[in-house]
Computed example of a mutant assay.
Amino acid sequence: MSTRTEGSADGLVRLTVEDGVGHLVLDDPARRNALSKRMSDDLAQAVDAALGLGARALVLSARPPVFCAGGSLDGLLERSTPLAEAYAGMTRLWEAPVPTIAAVGGPTVGAGVSLPLVCDVVVTTPAARFAPRFLDLAIHPGGGHLWHLARRVGPQGAAAMVLCGDALDGEEAVRHGLAWRCVPEADLLPTASRLARRAADRSGPLVRRTKQSLRQGVALSDVSAAAAVELAAQEWSVGRPEFTEAVRRVRAVVAEQRA
């Protein structure tokens, strides 16, 4: 087993890469893991570092009890940082070519909700709470928050959560499509890690290409266009040595069972 850790002792995001899975942990509990510019920059750097260390899947979690309290209010009031520069972390997560899994075990508020939204899969617990709350602070959502939220919970769900201030706990998040599984707290990281490891154990190029096709297909409104994207990727995959080897293994198993 190979374990490597990247990052300085005073960083706000801890990174460990183990067996092809990068574990990114928001680590500023004194500020409830608020998404300050420093936190966002550290997260972006951690994503890049994990990929540089060969991570084939990423798990995002946070030091409890709060997953993320949203954007830094001091930074917003001081306007010392352009708003466009505040989204580096979530942008890098969204653009990561490998599968990303968010493990949300506590409240996540405002811009903090965008972090799980930009991940491919969200695992949560009953204690989690997803509450955008932008309008409570008289600020418009940013960073693509409305687009990501509406893709998960639909336009009506996004309106209920953002315009009307509704919030979802972990079990409700699963029912509305914001999360994939709701598990007991003790199972949160093991479940997220298991999903990430399954992805990491598959062919890296194939997983990346499939994630790319999934993103492209969701953005298309015509099934023929989506089928064309998949056909090109499928033709690419059957020409790779991994496919030939997989078929050989299956045939060997079938032959052994018939013997």
Rank of each mutant, 00 (worst) to 15 (best):
L26Q: 02
V218N: 09
G71E: 13
A186V: 13
R14F: 01
R198E: 11
V153S: 08
Q212F: 10
C164D: 13
A179H: 10
D19Q: 11
A173V: 10
A128F: 06
V218H: 11
L135T: 07
P99K: 01
C119I: 07
V218K: 02
V247F: 12
T108L: 01
E6M: 10
A233R: 00
D42M: 02
A46R: 13
R249E: 15
V254Y: 05
S72D: 15
V207Q: 05
A86Y: 07
E171H: 14
A69T: 06
K211D: 14
T16V: 11
A30H: 06
G157P: 00
V109F: 10
L93A: 03
P116H: 04
V254H: 03
G54P: 09
R215M: 09
R92L: 04
R152G: 12
A228S: 11
V118G: 08
G157L: 10
V250F: 09
M90Y: 09
L76A: 14
A103V: 11
S213M: 10
A192H: 11
S193L: 03
G204Q: 15
A138G: 14
S40E: 03
V66M: 01
L220Q: 15
F130L: 00
P241K: 12
F67G: 06
G7C: 02
A84H: 07
S40T: 12
A138S: 10
M161F: 07
A88M: 01
R251N: 15
K37P: 13
L83W: 03
G105Y: 01
G239R: 12
C119D: 10
R258Y: 05
A167K: 08
A57D: 04
S203Q: 04
L206M: 12
G177L: 09
N33K: 01
L220R: 10
V153G: 03
M1A: 13
V66D: 07
E172Y: 08
R151A: 12
R56L: 04
V25S: 09
G110V: 00
R175H: 13
T5Q: 11
S72P: 03
F243A: 13
L24C: 00
G70T: 00
D169H: 01
V229P: 08
D187K: 08
A30R: 11
L117A: 09
L149D: 09
V118P: 05
E185L: 07
E256D: 13
L117Q: 09
V121E: 15
G204I: 09
R63Q: 12
I101T: 02
A111N: 02
V109G: 02
A44T: 12
A173I: 07
G75V: 01
L117P: 00
V238G: 07
